[in-house]
Design a protein around this nucleic acid. Sequence first.
RNA 1: UGGGUUAUGGUGUAAAGGUAGCACAACAGAUUUUGAUUCUGUUUGUCAAGGUUCGAAUCCUUGUAACCCAACCA
Length: 553
Amino acid sequence: MSEEKSLNFIEEIIEADLQSGKYNSISTRFPPEPNGYLHIGHAKAICLNFGLGLKYGGKTNLRFDDTNPVTEETEYVDSIKADIRWLGFTWTDELYTSDYFDTLYRYAVDLINKGLAYVDDSSAEDIAALKGTPTEPGKDNQFRSRTIAENLTLFTDMKAGKYKDGEKVLRAKIDMTHSNMLMRDPIIYRIKHAHHHRSGDKWCIYPMYDFAHGQSDSIENITHSICTLEFIPHRELYDWLIDKLGIFPSHQYEFARLNMTYTVMSKRKLLQLVNEGHVTGWDDPRMPTLSAFRRKGYTAESIRTFCDKIGVAKRENFIDLSLLEFCLREDLNQKALRVMAVLDPVKLIITNYEEGNTEILSSENGPDEALGKRNLSFGKELWIEREDFMEAPAKKWFRLAPGNMVRLKSAYIVKCESFIKDAAGTITAIHCTYIPESRSGSDSSGISVKGTIHWVNAADAVTAEIRLYDRLFTSENPLGEAGDFKDTINPNSLQIITNGLVEPSLKEATAESRYQFIRKGYFCTDKDSSPTKLVFNRTVTLKDAWAKEVKKN
RNA sequence: UGGGUUAUGGUGUAAAGGUAGCACAACAGAUUUUGAUUCUGUUUGUCAAGGUUCGAAUCCUUGUAACCCAACCA
C-alpha cells in the first residue's frame, strides 16, 4: 500500500483554511517576470503552485509580472508559456500585471486621497540618504507633508508625462523610522518613458513590484500567494496595502528557493553567461534552464518527480545534482530505446568470419518486452569502443585484451588474438576469432564470459556528431568560491565528437527522441540534427562502477 | 551592534511530548548478454549548554551559527 505522504507546511495551512471554512476553494498563481528563461528553480515553484491547484481542486493562474518595461520582452513570455506546458501544467487564466495598470493607478489615487501617499521630488541619492540603515532610523523630508490636492495634481502630471525619468516618484506614507526598511515610505510608482511589450506607450509611470503584486493577487482573488523567502520582509507592506486599500485579502506564504550543486540559479547570472558567450544561448544544454534541460534530453516527468522529492520547507537548501540525475535515469531507464553507438571507434576484424558474409541479428529495444526488438546486421569488420580494449589489462578487467574473450552484445563471443599498432603507438585494428556456436539466443558453446561490449557493423554504420556535456562549473558552489563565479567554469563542459558511429536504425531519429546508447549513457537527438547530419546530445551518463573501481586504484 | 527567518546523517525531507523514519549519496554483496537495471545489507543525524517531565528533535531558559532586508529590480 502506498504510504501516506506527510503534508508540507503550505499544504497544512491550506487544509486548515479549508477545514475552518476560511475558504471554500483555493487559488494560486505562478507569477514570473518575463525577463529571462525559466530555470529548474522555477520548476519547483511551478510544481508547487500548479500542484496545489490540482490537489485541492482550485485554480492556478499564470500571471506575467510585467511592471518593468525595460527588462521585459515577448520572447520571454513565449518561452515561459512553452516551458510550463512542457512541464505538463495548464493554467486557468493567462494574465498580465500590465492589464491592471488602470486599476493600479486608481488604487494609487485612492491612497493619495487617504493621505497615505505623496509625490517626492528627491533624487534617488537623496531618498537613499534619508532612508537610514538597518540600524539607524530614516528621516522625513519636506515633500512628505504635501497636501492631498497638491499630490493629486502632481501625480496626474506624472502620468501625463510632464516629468522626465527620475524627477519624481510616488511614495506610500508609512513610517520613516520603521524597523522594516521596506516600510520606510516605499516608492510605489516611478517614471519610465519606455515602451512596454504589451501596453506600448500608453504609460510613462509604472508601479513598483510592491504596489503591483499583492494588488494583482487581490484582483484575481488569489487565496494563497506563494513566493520565496527573500520576500518575507515584503509581507508587512503587502498586508498594509491590502488593508489600506480595503481590497480582497490575499495572503503571502514563503518557501525556500531551490539551490543546486554545480550551477547558479539567478536570472542575472544566467543572462551574463549568455551575453558573454560562455554558452551558446538560454537553451544551451549546459544551462539550468528548462529549455536547456529539454534540449539535453531530460523528461518533464523526471523534473516533476525531482520537485516532488526535494520537498517544500523554509530552510535554506543545497540539493545534490545527483538527485536530479537519479530521477532522470529512473525515468529514462523505462522509456529510452536501447541502441548501439561507438563514440571512439577502433576496428575489430573477425579473422575466421567469412569475407563478404552478412547476417541479421535481433536485439531487444529495452528491458521492457513491450518495446520490441530490432534487427542488426553483423559482418567480418566491426567498430568497437577504443576504451573497451586494453593491451595490458588492469586488475579485474573483463573487457577485451590479448587472449581475452568477451561477448559482442546480441551477437557472438569473440577472442582477441592480436592487434596492430601504428608507428605512433596507436592501436589501429584488433584481430579476433569468433565462436560460431555462441550466437545470442542460440548459444550452445557452453562458454561464459564476464564482459559484454557494444559494437556497430562497419558495413552499415552511420556517422554522427555526438555532443558530450558535462557540468558547466567545476565547483559545487560557484557562488561560494572566492572571486567571480565564472572563474569556476568547467573548460571541458562540452566535448564534440564529430566521427561517432551509430547503428543504422538511428537514421530516422527525430528531434527530442531519447535513446540509451548501450553502456555509454542516455542521449537525445538535438534540434540541429538532420537525416544528412545526425547530432546527438548526451543527456546523462550511466552509473559507472568501473570508473569508480579505476578511481580507487 | 536594528528587524526578520531558519537550525534533524554528506545532501534533502518526515516524526504535532512516546521506537529518530524515508530518499539521494557513499560503502559491501547477489543477479546480469549494458561494470547499466534489479535485489540485499552497512555506515552516518536531532546546533550547544542548562532546565521541566516517567519520557524531549518537539516545551522553557540562555547562548551559537547561517540566510534575508538600506534598486526609481522582481
